[in-house]
Every structure is written in C-alpha cells, then in structure tokens.
Design a protein around this nucleic acid. Structure first.
Length: 237
DNA sequence: ACCCAGGGCGTTG
DNA sequence: CAACGCCATGGG
C-alpha cells in the first residue's frame, strides 16, 4: 500500500473518532471565557489543575475588575495572588501573569487584536521564551485566544492517543503535534473542537472505579480508564 | 486519608 | 534523556 493511502486511513481514523465524540458530547464551544484576554489568563491558570479551580480564579479576577489588561498590568503580586488561590501554585502563576502582562503591554499595547495579527511562528517563539510558558500553554493561547490553526497537545491527548495505538506514550510533544497537523486539514475550528472533545472524554472516563462498566463512554475510550492504567503501573512495581 | 487535576522548571544520575 | 522534587488548592 502506498504511503498516501496509509495517511488517508489515519486521517479518517482521527476524524471518525472526532465525530463519535461530537455526537456523544455535543459541540464544546471552547474556550469557555468572556473575552480572548480572559482566555489567555485561563490558559495560564488552568495549568495542572481542574477547570473548576481555574475558572473560579478567572471569575475572582473578573469581579476585581482585573480582566481588563490595563488594570491587571497595574496590579502587583500582593493584589493578584489572593484572587487566584483556587488555581493552585498561585504564587508561581501570579508571576506568570505579571510576566505576560509586561510583554503584552510593551509588545502589543494590551491589544489582543494586535497580538492575534502577529505571525504565528514569531508569536509562538516569543511566548515560549517567557518563564512558565511551555508548549501546551502557548499553543492554547495561540489556538483559543488568537484563533491560530495550532493543534494543542495535553496529557489527555497523550493518554488517549497512545491507548488507541496512534503513537507511543513516550513520544515528545512536538512529534505528537506533528502527528495531528500532518494528517488533519489546517482548520482552526477543527483543532479547537477536537482538543476540547479530547478533554471532555479524558475528564469523563472513570477515575475512582476499578471496573469501567459504569463509565458512560468506555466504548469511546477504548476500554481503558485512568484507574486501570494506574493499577497496571502498580503491578509493575 | 488518600488520589489527582486541561504544566513547567530546576536538579540529579 | 529519564526520573524525580517542587509548587501548594480543592473535589471526589
């Protein structure tokens, strides 16, 4: 079989997976925020924490009038940190916000439209240079706040994709990203909802029950859940 | 009383 | 490069 055909098959496999998820969960309408600037804050605050904790932190900032770039830029560590406690690692995240705001005001005058107009590659490189901004956070900002066709990888994508045999679990971030971008059409809306669907699935599959019988999406999840994976890890040792 | 969330960074072997 | 430790809240 020629390579072009194999590629087509892989593409159809991903798209079929997406449509299954879409049918089950419905369109996710990400990112869940009121403005693109809030999306940036959300991307920082959502690092390694449940969305409820991150969202509560965004709401606290909003209620304090700090989802306005100028107001947030004027705030210092002591003013920000208490508002985002629910997002975990709040001191580090406060520094990340302060760091981003300095960059954002100087580089784009606090204007999300200007930022979104910048070249994707340049923007990605500049954001990655900020301490505390790794590939997932940066790509989330590029896709969800700036509407760039950049596919976002996260722990769920790694877990689910490897379990479905798409790539080894140890594959580096960039290679995993290339797996998707090489196969899928360069479509911001598809990247947006596919990642959102993967998170919807990843955060739904059972975590506390040893048996997946109760799992509402075990067929989609490929018969695996996080708990059984944890058990397997324990059996090794 | 555990376990673990929509990471990223610094340090060790 | 892998395997950790660190950050340090909150819900199940």
């Amino acid at each position: 079989m020629d390579p072009g055909m194999k590629k087509t098959i892989k593409r159809e496999r991903i798209l079929a997976f997406y449509h299954t998820l879409l049918q089950h969960f419905g369109h996710q309408h990400w990112w869940p925020s009121e403005t693109d600037f809030e999306t940036v804050l959300g991307a920082i605050l959502a690092q390694n924490v449940s969305w409820t904790g991150a969202d509560r932190a965004v709401c606290s900032l909003r209620e304090a009038g700090m989802t306005n770039p100028a107001a947030l830029y004027a705030a210092d560590h002591a003013a920000i940190a208490p508002l985002i406690r629910s997002s975990r690692y709040y001191n580090q995240k406060t520094e990340k916000i302060i760091l981003f705001m300095r960059y954002f005001m100087i580089r784009f005058d606090g204007d999300m439209t200007r930022m979104a107009d910048e070249d994707t590659r340049i923007l990605r490189k500049e954001l990655l240079a900020l301490r505390g901004f790794g590939p997932e956070t940066v790509d989330s900002i590029l896709l969800y706040a700036c509407k760039k066709p950049v596919f976002v990888i996260d722990a769920y994508t790694r877990r689910i994709g490897s379990r479905r045999g798409w790539f080894p679990e140890t594959i580096p971030y960039q290679e995993m990203q290339e797996y998707f971008t090489a196969l899928l059409p360069k479509d911001t809306e598809l990247y947006n909802d596919l990642h959102a669907q993967i998170v919807a699935l990843g955060s739904t599959i059972c975590t506390t029950k040893p048996v997946c019988d109760a799992c509402p999406v075990r067929e989609i999840g490929g018969g695996h859940c996080r708990f059984t994976a944890t058990l397997k890890e324990r059996e090794k040792t």
